[in-house]
Structures are given as structure tokens and as C-alpha cells.
Design a protein around this nucleic acid. Structure first.
Length: 781
DNA sequence: CAGTGAGCGAGCTTCCGCTTGACTT
């Protein structure tokens, strides 16, 4: 048996370190935290100085018992969890749970997984830092108190099963507030003047700095330019340079993978996890931009051999994000010599991105020569400006160019990087064409998952390990949806001056179309407004930063954690009590106006099943017969922005469109779009068909088409029970047993199945314990 | 999947942060 047991957080890390340490060391992993607060109310004893009750969760029992056994046998136990607040707490939980003894327990830390770093750590053991542990407990207790006291307020005042928390509620707030900024944004139009001088390869663009809000002014400008002389007034050339970005952290990796590869943040993390486990990259949950000495040396070697000395420039980066704890290195390839790896397509692409970014971070600047020409007009005092840029040395751009979030105004706006022909001061220029194009100011951009992560990181909210789960949570709770939305077409005017003649035309463009952007739902907006109204302090963008400062004081031994939590809890709990008793139920109700024919009030609000419109007052005690009319809002509509007319439209459906085989056909809109219902069968309407315009003939045709398609899918039907069928589905043949779908085992021929066999299979399926993730099994219940 | 929307009440939901695993129709 090994003399030493060393415990780290991650099993992949354990494997690597075991290789460094030799046979005297057994290296094991705790798989993160091994204990957590119990789920129940008594997890924190408030009257007793916030004393916590912890438990080992079921899925950690095995790990803990194995570690316990090994610890008993070892001479020395080395606690090597990460060097940050959570890591220190993990060490303490291990110490406590495994019944370790001070005398033979050593706490060590390292922030890079290299042999020298580990050896140095072992030479310098210390004791558990209880101040740091206390800071973690304060963090944990605060989050539990906030989450488990706020959520029930929402259950009572908004809707059951909702949630609120220090991190998620601010994330939702960011999305809701941005949407409102966009809604109230007033776009302003102005004409932008662009001139083209010269012909063919010598042609280049010049722009006017001013924009004209009135068409007359733009037209006057073009008019003045007819027959005018254009002269190069000044010519300035200066060198510029661009430096590489720091190697990836979790947040920057998520952003760049989203922009360049189109991955969601959770997809990026899953792929990165695989790369980490197969030893291709360092740890992927990190807030550090630091590279180890060995990594720096190996990158230097790779760059000089692959590209030459002039491409190498050693750089050390400093983290900018506020709450960074820097327990790990930046994300980088384990071996810089591997430009590519084996793996599936997504793994290869992500690895390549990580490799390029890390290599580029140690390369020299790219150098440019930027030329600015000012062009005078004989008939006007304004000058046109032409910019050109020539790359003199590519430097790090040889391997990597970071992208950014900003979209271009128009496709032809790329004149910044253009190349100018040789020009000289005083030179006369030949105008080829000049245009005045109407352009519109743009509202702030909606957030993507990745840009939300960026924002959260800037605010110091959340941690590398929680960005992806937080984004999932706010979507799972229905506060936010990630969607595609169609844009609207918009007309814009273009004036073109060519050959002393001004042509006017109107063009159309599509604007406001979004893909993969985060939109708040009505419930998200109502919950947010409720929290902002009653718990301003908690959903304040600076709340986390404020408490982090106090956690730091606890970690430095300057403040008692129970004191800090006590000071926070007293007023917070009073707010909770007060809100529970006095606040109105939040429905986001909004009056839209009066129904033009009925003269009754029309309003929208959130109900048990989502947002809906109501015509008329609620039934009162004096008039129990009276019933208001209801209609659900459709996808993409919101109680905040819907108009009276749009609301009244909703009452035109469902609509009876005719009769077929003695049964009525109805058109309605369901969760998946418009459909026809007939004799308890459903047919989706094809795209582009307006549900209000469906005719009887069209409906019959669609029903018959659907029947034909279903018949093609049908493998076998049974006389015993018409609701039982064998069908060919997307995932292969299956049995439709009433409402239950059952997969057919591979060893059975679907054509040969008897009714009895189907029944048996369906029976077995409904009885079989649902395998798979606990989350899934729980949801089913 | 798909038409509902009052109010009652039982019993349920919920936080953040550290890890991986083993899954859906």
C-alpha cells in the first residue's frame, strides 16, 4: 500500500499527477465537492449562528467511502484541491468527512499541472486556511438563504416552481432590460455619402464624415459635386500595429467558439471536457490568462521552429476580470507541437481554436501602414476621407485573428482595410460615382449566450464552472428563450450621381432578423419586475461585487463570517416577510383599451398557462352567469408589446372552416403553429398558409394528404384495437400503443409482430424502470 | 402538443459552485 494519499478535484488531473509522483503516492479524486447543505429547511440554523448541516449526497457516497478507506491506510494524506475559496472548502470537507488527523494531513496547492510545480508544492505543505473556508461558508450560506427564501415568495406571488438567486436573477434582469431598450429605441435615418474615384484596380472609396438627415441636403451635396474638381488636400501615412489577445479563459473560449464556430456555451464546454479528458488541453474551467513557465518555453520553441524567430515575442498577460481566483492556468494545448489532434470534427475545430489562440498569444505584433487621404471639393468646404491599410508584417495574424461582436453597418462598409492606389498631394481625382444612401441607427444588440457570459463576467457574477449551467437554468425556468425571429422589410432611399446625372431609387432591406439570440419571456419580465420592486438590493448589478468584497475580508481574517451573514440576513428576511404579507400577486396586467364593438375592456396578463388576453371583466358575485372571453398569446408575442388590434386578431381562431365526413374541421394555433383538427386527428398547416384564409376544400385536401403520408409510414395495423399500430419513425420502427410509443427490439421483425406481442412489449416498457440520468427520471414523475 | 384562465388545499418546487457520468424518443 502506498504511503501517501494525494487527493485532487478532477480524476483526469489525478491520472496525470500520479505519473509524476511514482509508487509512493496514490493519487485520487474527490470529483469536486463531496458534501453539501441538506436540502431541507433546517440546513441552516439561523438562531444558532447560522450553524450548517451538511450531508454526503447519494452520488458521492461511493467516492467518500473509498477515500475513507485509503486515508485510513495511508501514512500521510495530501489535500491538493484547487487554490481558491471552493478548493479550500473541499479540503476542509475532506478533512472533516474522512476523519483525518492534523498530524498526518498536509494541504498543498499548485496552479499548474507540471512536474516542477507539483514537486515544489510537496516541498511546501501548509495547514488548511480556515479563514478561506469561512469565506466559502459565507458564500454558500448566503446563496442558500437568498435562493430558498426568495423562490417561495415567487411561488406565492407569481407562479409555483419558479426560482430566484443571486446569479440567475441578475442574468434575467440583463436580458429583460436590454429588450426594453430595444423596444423603446427610435431609429434615426440619415444619408451617408460615399464617393468612388478612379476605375478598375485603381478605384477606391472615400466617405464624408457628416451624414445628412434631410434628403434635400444630401441631394444638394450631390448636385454641388456635379462638375466640381476633386483634389488630394493632404496625405498622411503612419505605422499602426495590432497585438494578439490573451490565451483563452472559460468565458473567452465560450465567446469565440460561439462567434467562430457557432457553438452554444454548453456545447463548447462538453467538447472541451472531452479534449481535457483525452489529455489534449489543460483544464477548461478557469478564469486565468496565465501560462506556466514550461508552457511558455514550449510555445517559444514551437513558434521559432515553425515560423522563425521574428514571429516570436514572449508575453505575460494579467487578468482583467474582477473576481478572478486564478486556481488554474489559461486554457492551452498540453503539447504545443500538436497543431491538430485526432477526434471528431467538433473536437478538432475547438482544439485548433485553442491551439491558435495560445500560440498567437506568444507571437509578435502585426504591423500595418495606415494611409489617410483628405480630398477637397472645389464647390464645397467639406472634405472626403479615404482610408487605406497595408500589412507590412503579419506577426501573430499568421495563425489567429480574434473576431468581435459588432456587426457591420452595411456590407460595403469595409473600406477601412482597403488598399489605396499611389496618391500624391495636390493630385486631381476623377469622380466615377457618388452615392447618398439612407442608413438607420441601430438599437443595442440582443445578447447571445456567449455575450451574456461576457457581461456576467464583467460584473463579477458567476464562475467558470457555472456560466453554462446558469444559461440553461434561466431557459429551463422559462424566463428566457433562445430563438430565431424574422425581421421586417424596410425601405431606404439611394441617390446616385453618375455622369453628371442624379438617379433616385428606393430599395428594400431586411432588418431586425435574429438567430440564436436571447429574448425574455413574459414570465421572465414579470418575475424581474417583481424582484426589482421588492428586492432591489439582491438583483442590483453590484450586489455580488459588494458581497465578494466582504468575503475577501473574511478570507483575510478581518471579519467574522457569521457577523457578515447576520448583518445581511436581518433586513433581507424582514423584506421577505413583508413582501409575503403585503405584496399583490404579480400578473403583469396591462389594459389594452376597449373592444370596438362590445365596448368591454381588453387586457393582457400572465395566467396559469402563460400569457393571455381577456375581453370583459372577471365574473362578479352579482353576476355569476357572466363569462369573459380568453385567448392565449402566440409565440413571439408579449404582453408588453402586443397592441389592441393584434390581441383582437387572436379571437378569430379557432374557427370552423367546414365539414368533412360528417365532422367539423377547425383551424387553430397550437404550441407548434397553426393546425386543422378533424375527428380528433391533427394536421399542421404548411408554412405560408394564413390560418384565417383556409378554405373548406383546402382543409379537406390537407387532411387527405396527411392520411396518405400516414399510410406510407404504416407497417402493420390490428383488428383487435385500431389505436395500436406498427409504424416507421425517424428512429426506426416503433409501436404506437394508444398514446404510448414503444421501441421495437432489434431481434424482432416489425412485419411479423402480433397484437399480443405488441401488448407485451408495451406492458414491459411501462413497467421497466426508466434508466438514465436522475434528472430525467425525476422530471418524468 | 393541441381547447384551460375563480379559489380551495395537499404536497411539490428552489440556491451556487465544485466535479463527471450516462442518458432520452
Amino acid at each position: 500500500m502506498a504511503k501517501n494519499l494525494l487527493i485532487v478535484e478532477s480524476p483526469a488531473k489525478a491520472k496525470t499527477i500520479e505519473g509524476y509522483l511514482g509508487k509512493d503516492f496514490t493519487v485520487k479524486s474527490s470529483y469536486g465537492h463531496i458534501r453539501d447543505l441538506v436540502k431541507s429547511e433546517d440546513a441552516i440554523d439561523i438562531a444558532n449562528n447560522f450553524k450548517q448541516t451538511y450531508e454526503v449526497p447519494a452520488d458521492k457516497k461511493q467516492v467518500v467511502s473509498e477515500l475513507k478507506k485509503l486515508a485510513k491506510e495511508a501514512e500521510t494524506v495530501w489535500l491538493a484541491s484547487d487554490e481558491d475559496r471552493e478548493g479550500e472548502a473541499i479540503s476542509w470537507h475532506l478533512f472533516d468527512t474522512l476523519n483525518l488527523k492534523d498530524a498526518n494531513t498536509k494541504r498543498i496547492v499548485f496552479h499548474e499541472i507540471t512536474k516542477p510545480a507539483i514537486m515544489a508544492a510537496i516541498e511546501n505543505p501548509r495547514k488548511i486556511n480556515y479563514n478561506l473556508v469561512n469565506a466559502q461558508q459565507a458564500r454558500r450560506v448566503l446563496d442558500r438563504l437568498v435562493g430558498f427564501e426568495l423562490s417561495p415568495v415567487l411561488w406565492k406571488k407569481v407562479k409555483p416552481s419558479l426560482s430566484a438567486g443571486r446569479v440567475q436573477s441578475v442574468a434575467v434582469r440583463i436580458i429583460v432590460e436590454r429588450e426594453r431598450e430595444i423596444n423603446k429605441f427610435q431609429s434615426e435615418a440619415a444619408f451617408k455619402i460615399v464617393a468612388i474615384f478612379g476605375k478598375g484596380r485603381q478605384a477606391f472609396k472615400a466617405e464624408l464624415a457628416e451624414r445628412y438627415s434631410k434628403q434635400e441636403d444630401a441631394e444638394k451635396f450631390l448636385q454641388d459635386c456635379i462638375g466640381a474638381d476633386f483634389t488630394v488636400n493632404s496625405l498622411e501615412t503612419r505605422p499602426t500595429k495590432r497585438s494578439p489577445a490573451a490565451p483563452f479563459t472559460t468565458s473567452t473560449l465560450q465567446q469565440e467558439a460561439s462567434r467562430k464556430l457557432g457553438y452554444s456555451v454548453s456545447r463548447t464546454m462538453q467538447i472541451a471536457q472531452r479534449l481535457y479528458e483525452s489529455g489534449h488541453i489543460t483544464y477548461m474551467r478557469t478564469d486565468s490568462v496565465n501560462l506556466s513557465e514550461t508552457a511558455l518555453a514550449s510555445a517559444a520553441n514551437e513558434i521559432t521552429t515553425a515560423y522563425g524567430n521574428q514571429y516570436y515575442q514572449q508575453r505575460k498577460y494579467k487578468t482583467k476580470s474582477a473576481g478572478a481566483q486564478e486556481a488554474h492556468e489559461a486554457i492551452r494545448p498540453t503539447y504545443f507541437a500538436n497543431h491538430t489532434i485526432d477526434g471528431d470534427g467538433s473536437e478538432k475545430r475547438l482544439y485548433e481554436l485553442i491551439w491558435k489562440r495560445a500560440i498567437a498569444s506568444q507571437m509578435s505584433e502585426a504591423q500595418f501602414e495606415k494611409t489617410t487621404a483628405k480630398i477637397g471639393i472645389s464647390t464645397r468646404k467639406e472634405e472626403l476621407t479615404a482610408n487605406g491599410e497595408v500589412m507590412k508584417f503579419d506577426g501573430f495574424l499568421k495563425v489567429y485573428l480574434e473576431s468581435n461582436d459588432e456587426e457591420e453597418d452595411t456590407p460595403q462598409d469595409d473600406s477601412d482595410n482597403a488598399i489605396l492606389p499611389p496618391l500624391s498631394k495636390g493630385q486631381r481625382l476623377e469622380l466615377e460615382e457618388m452615392s447618398a444612401t439612407e442608413r438607420f441607427s441601430r438599437p443595442p444588440a440582443r445578447y447571445t449566450e456567449a455575450s451574456l457570459v461576457k457581461k456576467l463576467e464583467e460584473l463579477g457574477i458567476g464562475r467558470p464552472s457555472t456560466y453554462a449551467p446558469t444559461i440553461s437554468t434561466i431557459q429551463n425556468r422559462g424566463y428566457v428563450v433562445k430563438e430565431e425571429r424574422e425581421g421586417k422589410t424596410r425601405k431606404f432611399r439611394v441617390l446616385t450621381l453618375k455622369d453628371a446625372n442624379i438617379a433616385k431609387e428606393e430599395r428594400t432591406e431586411n432588418t431586425g432578423a435574429e438567430r440564436g439570440k436571447l429574448f425574455p419571456t413574459d414570465i421572465g419580465a414579470v418575475v424581474n419586475d417583481f424582484l426589482v420592486q421588492h428586492f432591489k438590493g439582491i438583483v442590483d448589478f453590484n450586489f455580488t461585487a459588494k458581497v465578494e468584497k466582504q468575503f475577501d475580508e473574511i478570507a483575510a481574517g478581518l471579519e467574522e463570517w457569521t457577523n457578515m451573514i447576520g448583518n445581511f440576513y436581518k433586513p433581507f428576511h424582514a423584506d421577505v416577510e413583508n413582501t409575503m404579507e403585503t405584496a399583490d400577486k404579480a400578473t403583469g396586467i396591462r389594459e389594452l383599451g376597449i373592444h370596438p364593438e362590445k365596448g368591454e375592456k381588453v387586457s393582457v396578463r400572465i395566467g396559469r398557462y402563460g400569457p393571455f388576453v381577456q375581453i370583459g371583466e372577471n365574473a362578479s358575485d352579482d353576476n355569476k352567469e357572466y363569462k369573459p372571453q380568453y385567448a392565449s398569446l402566440r409565440n413571439g408575442q408579449s404582453i408588453e408589446t402586443i397592441t389592441l388590434d393584434e390581441a383582437l386578431e387572436l379571437f378569430k381562431l379557432p374557427k370552423v372552416v367546414g365539414e368533412f365526413e360528417g365532422k367539423t374541421m377547425k383551424v387553430a394555433i397550437g404550441r407548434f403553429g397553426p393546425y386543422i383538427s378533424h375527428n380528433s386527428a391533427f394536421v399542421s398547416l404548411p408554412k405560408g398558409v394564413d390560418p384565417l384564409d383556409v378554405t373548406e376544400e383546402q382543409a379537406i385536401e390537407l387532411i387527405q394528404e396527411k392520411r396518405k403520408k400516414d399510410a406510407e409510414k404504416l407497417i402493420k395495423a390490428f383488428d383487435e384495437d385500431p389505436t395500436v399500430k406498427v409504424l416507421n419513425g425517424r428512429f426506426g420502427p416503433y409501436i404506437e400503443f394508444g398514446k404510448q410509443n414503444v421501441k421495437i427490439p432489434k431481434d424482432k421483425d416489425p412485419k411479423e409482430l402480433t397484437y399480443e406481442e405488441c401488448k407485451a412489449l408495451a406492458d414491459a416498457d411501462s413497467k421497466a424502470p426508466k434508466k438514465g440520468g436522475k434528472k430525467f427520471a425525476k422530471k418524468k414523475k
